[in-house]
């Protein structure tokens, strides 16, 4: 991939044929990792992330424990084979930074106070990278946490927006990402209309930024609807909630 001098916009369309404010095709599914408490897999075009969530569970070493709240550990990792060049496995400066910002995107949403001294572990693996990997990871992680039963204020939906060759766009792919004038990652709690992550790389005017934020919000809403549908549809074959309610009434001991 890397830098290119080619035109990124041909005949008013982007290189992959998308309009400026068009997202790539998105697929989502939950329960991608059998052993995890909750898991999800999300693909934005060629970008693909798989997330496993464990916990809340006991936190060791003990000095990391917080007596009044749980903590969250978020690991963002790109698989060595996820890019055209091999990525050196293990921690990298970039990986550590994205892990931290992604974690901060979830902390306002999760009720970690309910689980003092514990940890929620989120493992995000990027299987295939083609731009916007962190937001893909955040979208998957949010679904995985919901499936794991971690109490949350809202799902977190994320998308990327940016500017290429003077044109504002949404959902940057790999080549646009590498050649962008600006690149903004946005995560939000859609039903609360609150931002939880806002990262910008590059230069934008104030007006451009606000235009992009509006677009990002619009897209986050659409992504949220998809997340919601993906979670709910997976329980469609068992629509009989009455049975569970009945059983709960009989709960004893």
């Amino acid at each position: 991939m890397g830098k290119t001098n080619d035109n990124l916009i041909v005949d008013g369309k982007r290189l992959d044929g998308r309009a400026f404010y068009e997202m790539r095709p998105i697929t989502m599914r939950i329960n991608a990792v059998e052993n995890a408490d909750g898991s999800a897999q999300v693909a934005f075009g060629n970008t693909e992330a798989i997330v496993a969530v464990y916990g809340p569970r006991k936190l060791f070493p003990r000095f990391l424990q917080e007596n009044d709240r749980g903590i969250m550990r978020y690991r963002y990792n790109m698989a060595p084979f996820s890019c055209t060049d091999r990525i050196r496995p293990g921690n990298s400066r970039r990986g550590i930074e994205i892990s931290k910002t992604s974690r901060l995107a979830f902390e306002p949403a999760a009720f970690l106070d309910d689980f003092p001294t514990t940890v929620v572990d989120v493992f995000t693996e990027i299987l295939q990278a083609d731009g916007s990997t962190r937001v893909t990871g955040i979208n998957a992680a949010s679904m995985a946490m919901a499936v794991a039963g971690v109490p949350m204020r809202d799902l977190v939906a994320a998308c990327s927006v940016g500017k290429i060759q003077g044109q504002l766009i949404v959902d940057l792919n790999g080549i646009e990402d590498n050649n962008s004038e600006a690149d903004v990652a946005v995560a939000m709690m859609p039903t609360k209309d609150r931002l939880t992550l806002l990262q910008m790389d590059g230069v934008l005017t104030k007006d451009e930024l606000f235009t992009l934020l509006d677009k990002a919000r619009e897209n986050c809403m659409r992504i949220y609807d998809m997340q919601k549908a993906a979670i709910k549809n997976s329980f469609k074959q068992n629509p009989d909630a009455e049975a569970a309610v009945e059983a709960d009434k009989g709960e004893m001991q």
């Binding site: 949403a109 949350m152 799902l155 859609p190 039903t191 609360k192 979670i231 709910k232 329980f235 629509p239």
Partner: peptide
Amino acid sequence: HRSIVIPGEY
């Protein structure tokens, strides 16, 4: 309304 709700749903 007895369907499943997800976190943050009213």
